[in-house]
């Protein structure tokens, strides 16, 4: 790796703090890959080489890990990465139609990014929000109870620099890189923002409280 490709001293120091969380350094490979994505947007060669160097691994070993997990991208994705759940329940309840609508509106297909680099699209598997189906994730923030129309508007807003607010998430939608840093374990101080729970989450509790009143 030639010198000009290396991360900044500050970034390298952050890598060391991530490594220090674990009894064995190799465990840090996943947060380090998230961290590389927070800087470069995807898993770059310099990211792989730096991690290999930091963890005393062969570059092939880092590649083996990065290509196993779908959240690590080998190509750049958009500033806003839109994931439409197409697992059975969401698909049946509208996910398929939503995905088609998003493709049409953006003029791109699965795993593609708009030319301006703003929005990319991915068919995603179940994201643990089935009681809010159909579900769309943007930069891995929840957008619950979507329709084709709502998603068309959403991707327009993303293209136009007016990112919509997640249903259960912070008050402003953060970029792909910013959220990758959170996944690397670097706090952005936004934990207190947003609702504590969506309506479906509270359904049973509210019924129970009604039962108690009876």
């Amino acid at each position: 790796m030639s010198d000009h490709q290396v991360f900044t001293a500050e970034q390298l120091a952050t890598m060391d703090t991530i490594i220090a969380r674990y009894p064995k350094s190799r465990s840090a490979i996943m947060p380090l890959l998230h961290f590389v994505q927070s800087i470069d947007g995807y898993v770059t060669p310099r990211g792989i080489e730096s991690i290999a160097l930091k963890l005393d691994l062969a570059t092939a070993e880092v590649t083996a890990v990065s290509t196993f997990y779908t959240q690590y991208k080998s190509e750049p994705v958009g500033e806003y990465h839109v994931g439409v759940c197409i697992n059975t329940l969401c698909a049946v309840m509208g996910g398929d139609a939503i995905f088609e609508a998003a493709c049409d509106q953006l003029g791109i297909k699965n795993h593609e990014t708009t030319k301006n680099g703003k929005v990319s699209l991915e068919r995603i598997e179940c994201n643990a929000a089935c009681d809010f189906a159909p579900v769309v994730m943007v930069n891995w923030e929840f957008f619950d109870n979507q329709t084709p129309q709502s998603v068309k508007e959403m991707v327009d807003d993303l293209q136009n620099g007016k990112p919509p607010v997640p249903t259960r998430g912070p008050n402003t939608l953060r970029t792909w890189k910013e959220n990758s840093a959170v996944l690397a374990g670097l706090s952005d101080g936004l934990a207190n923002e947003g609702v504590q729970a969506g309506p479906a989450t509270l359904r049973g509790l509210n019924i129970a409280q009604g039962q108690d009143k009876k």
Partner: peptide, 13 residues
């Protein structure tokens, strides 16, 4: 799981 950033924030806090 990594696909739930806000849950990560809450849990980390």
């Amino acid at each position: 799981r990594g696909e739930v950033v806000h849950v990560v924030r809450r849990l980390q806090q």
